[in-house]
């Protein structure tokens, strides 16, 4: 039963969603598929709680056992509790939550992402050398696209935005389309394997 029940549930829900995507039968779509969707949102919400509980379990263990740099775990748990509990009790429009979000969380999150610009600048300078003809093509394309995306590019040469657009709409789009079609075919195969019980990796290693 531990194997059969999940396979049957997966098959029924998978086929229902698949059919409903292409053919809308009003009663089935509203009552049956709609009900499944409600359940899926509830399951997703519980998955969030499960994730949070797992973080708590791991970091409480680190604190209790006095593991190396345990105070980082304590800071994480306190921050997590405050940012979760305050909006749960007093809504996200609460002044404390808004203040913490705007003045601490947002800046920390933004800073982490902004650091990428510095790493990319340094990495591009070191790695972007015209060692081959292909690298030269890549370099010229990168310069045209970068300058074409900013107002200063058009000031330097009016052709930058035009050729930047040409490179993106012709070459980039063709490449992206190929990647997307390949990924979509892979997703279809994976979905069918899961629906028909061939791929059972979602059982969790059984």
């Amino acid at each position: 039963m531990r194997r059969e029940v999940p396979i049957v549930v997966t098959f029924v829900s998978g086929i229902l969603f698949l059919l409903d995507y292409f053919i809308k039968i009003p009663y089935v779509s509203e009552n049956v598929v709609g009900q499944f969707l409600d359940w899926a949102i509830i399951v997703a919400a519980f998955a969030l709680i499960l994730g949070a509980a797992n973080i708590f379990r791991i970091h409480i263990y680190k604190i209790v056992k006095g593991k190396k740099e345990w105070w980082n775990s304590l800071i994480l748990l306190v921050a997590m509790l405050v940012m979760a509990v305050v909006p749960i009790i007093w809504t996200q429009q609460n002044a404390v939550y808004t203040f913490l979000f705007k003045n601490i969380f947002e800046n920390l999150n933004g800073t982490m992402f902004a650091l990428l610009a510095f790493y990319i600048a340094s990495a591009a300078y070191r790695a972007f050398r015209v060692r081959t003809k292909e690298a030269a093509v890549l370099l010229v394309s990168a310069v045209v696209v970068m300058l074409g995306a900013t107002p200063i590019g058009a000031k330097i040469w009016s052709g930058f935005p035009e050729y930047s657009g040409w490179l993106q709409t012709i070459f980039t789009t063709a490449g992206m389309r190929g990647i997307m079609i390949g990924a979509s075919l892979g997703a279809i195969v994976t979905a069918l394997r899961t629906i028909f019980g061939i791929d059972r990796s979602y059982f969790g290693g059984q």
Binding site: A121, A124, Y125, F128, R129, V130, A142, L147, I152
Partner: peptide, 21 residues
């Protein structure tokens, strides 16, 4: 800021390549 920073990154790439060549 975006315009000038793009220009600076391109300048560094070009300097590195000119020196390399």
């Amino acid at each position: 800021a975006q315009s000038i920073s793009h220009l600076v990154i391109i300048a560094f790439i070009l300097i590195g390549n000119i020196a390399y060549l």
